[in-house]
Nucleic acid binder design. Sequence first.
DNA 1: ATCCTACGATGGACAGAGTCCAGGTCAAGA
DNA 2: TCTTGACCTGGACTCTGTCCATCGTAGGAT
Lengths: 136, 136
Amino acid sequence: MSDLLERLRGRGWRVTSQRRVVAQVLDGDHVHLTADEVHARAARLLPEISRATVYNTLGEMVSLGEVLEVSTDGRAKRYDPNAHRPHQHLVCSGCGTIRDVGTTGDLLAHLPAEERFGFTVDTAEVTYRGLCPACA
Amino acid sequence: MSDLLERLRGRGWRVTSQRRVVAQVLDGDHVHLTADEVHARAARLLPEISRATVYNTLGEMVSLGEVLEVSTDGRAKRYDPNAHRPHQHLVCSGCGTIRDVGTTGDLLAHLPAEERFGFTVDTAEVTYRGLCPACA
DNA sequence: ATCCTACGATGGACAGAGTCCAGGTCAAGA
DNA sequence: TCTTGACCTGGACTCTGTCCATCGTAGGAT
């Protein structure tokens, strides 16, 4: 994820300790933290960081396409740093765990022309639901 | 939608003017109102109806499987009365309009076994995104 | 037709998630 | 090192949704 900061710097982003810490917290696979969780973890590394800064930083990363917003439960949005590899989400109906999953084939092909109502459709986001091994 | 009230009565639901009005507001195709919109429209028919009652009634209809909760934007949840015909949602990235769409084929088939992480997967919810004719 | 009572409605307080803003701070170029 | 505009801060505010004590009423019982 250190390349995230590099990419952002390359786009004229000013790198501050706050932004560095937020990027650091979001590092890893299958990471889907809420803004408050990001704030809590960031605050362990940089105690004075404010909630507003975390929200601003996450919002900017999303606009720049470096982080994805996910809302699988209608509660708080979650932030997914895995933005450069297309993927869908598998959610446990029991505990709410989220995994990134890769799919095969073309999901858009399932939407016939007569069901498109004249829209120009360009993406299909899928949320698979089921029970994880621990909850089953 | 009058059959909705009948079904609910059949399940031992007490029919009140408030519940009748909420069911009436939710009648129709491609209806995806937020709780506050339901409340506003219900209040035009029954001015004293309270927000809490609308939330309770919607929640009950969802538990009974008569109405679906949809959250396509991470903001307020929307309520979809089209619960008895399986369908997915097509959302305009410009204006946020939502249409119910039918799909063909098996969406679960796109998730290979090695991407299931031991989960027992049973549903796939798809949100198609694109631009509606007016926004394009 | 009237009475009873348990279920439902009310509205106001509260909580969680997110946004906004005025003022203080600092990264990075000159 | 200096300068400055971009950034950060904390707190107030908005929106969405939940909770609760109290009052009202649908619909079965008489």
